[in-house]
């Protein structure tokens, strides 16, 4: 024995089906309503009722949280019936569905970019609409998400740091931090990122071989100076100045190390010459070390 719903679903009386679908929709029985709407949307093609039907079809999908299909249906509605009274709402809902589909910052942000584009397009279409204000708010939230991601991923290189004595992660951190600031010029973490850049560059210099340290420390000092200029009132100044001082003393000790090495080498060379004099047959040739 078939249920009432099954009977209607299998019947060919489209008008009755439509009535039943709307009844189910209003009763918030969306999953059943969807089955009927899906069926009807095929059969109503090219008929006057199609407009209303497709609108409710899209809304049903939205209520069922199938945002991917819903946004497609909203968009195709707005494209098919641009003069409809629901057109603005559908354009907005299509963009809003993208917004809802945007995942947390640590995942792929493809939908976030699409949501920003879609919301922006809505604002361009209906700049005076009340919904445009909402749309602008959502764009702000989405941008923050992208900034969070850029900051977190750049910071990661600093955090995983010099594993196994390799300095390359610190250099990666400096580059990633710079890129994040290029991509998001008014990023809200600017201050923290500038400090982290000095820290990373300092750590990079410190973990390098002595011959490279001077240049790399100097770069850290440059970043520190830029920080002071960019954020003169910052609470982080004390830490920045500390890093600058450490970099300066780092240069000193690197220079000392190189000088000492050269001195030892000179000592060794003169000893060899002495020995060479003693033993006239010895023919030692020595190259000067590369600096």
């Amino acid at each position: 024995c078939k249920s009432q719903f099954e009977k209607i679903r299998l019947s060919n009386d489209v008008a009755k089906k439509y009535q039943e679908a709307m009844k189910l929709y209003n009763k918030k029985n969306y999953s059943k309503a969807l089955i009927l709407f899906e069926d009807l949307s095929q059969k109503y093609r090219g008929r006057a009722e199609a407009e209303e039907l497709n609108y409710y079809y899209a809304l049903t999908l939205y209520k069922l949280r199938d945002y991917t299909t819903a946004r497609y249906q909203f968009k195709s509605f707005a494209d098919s019936y641009p003069t409809s009274k629901y057109a603005e709402e559908c354009r907005y809902m299509s963009a809003y569905c993208y917004y809802l589909d945007s995942p947390r910052p640590s995942l792929d942000q493809e939908n976030t970019y699409k949501a920003i584009d879609a919301l922006q397009l809505f604002i361009n279409f209906y700049p005076k609409s009340e919904r445009a204000v909402e749309a602008a708010k959502y764009i702000g939230i989405l941008r923050t998400k992208l900034e969070d991601k850029a900051y977190a991923n750049a910071k990661m290189y600093y955090e995983i740091g010099g594993n196994g004595g390799e300095a390359s992660n610190y250099r990666a951190a400096v580059i990633a931090l710079k890129n994040a600031q290029i991509d998001y010029p008014d990023i809200k973490y600017a201050e923290e990122m500038d400090l982290l850049m000095i820290k990373s560059q300092y750590a990079f210099a410190k973990n390098s071989i002595e011959d490279r340290q001077e240049d790399r420390y100097n770069e850290a000092i440059t970043y520190a100076n830029e920080f002071v200029e960019a954020h003169p009132e910052s609470k982080l100044l004390k830490e920045v100045n500390g890093l600058k001082k450490d970099s300066e003393s780092g240069i000193e000790s690197a220079k000392r190390f190189i000088a000492e090495r050269l001195a030892n080498y000179e000592k060794y060379k003169s000893q060899l010459t002495k020995e060479a004099k003693r033993d006239s047959t010895a023919t030692n040739t020595i190259k000067t070390p590369n600096r």
Partner: peptide, 15 residues
């Protein structure tokens, strides 16, 4: 999460 994969990537910025 990004981090789980990014930390394994050997082609790092700057290299």
């Amino acid at each position: 999460n990004d981090r789980v994969v990014l930390r394994e990537i050997r082609t790092k910025p700057g290299e």
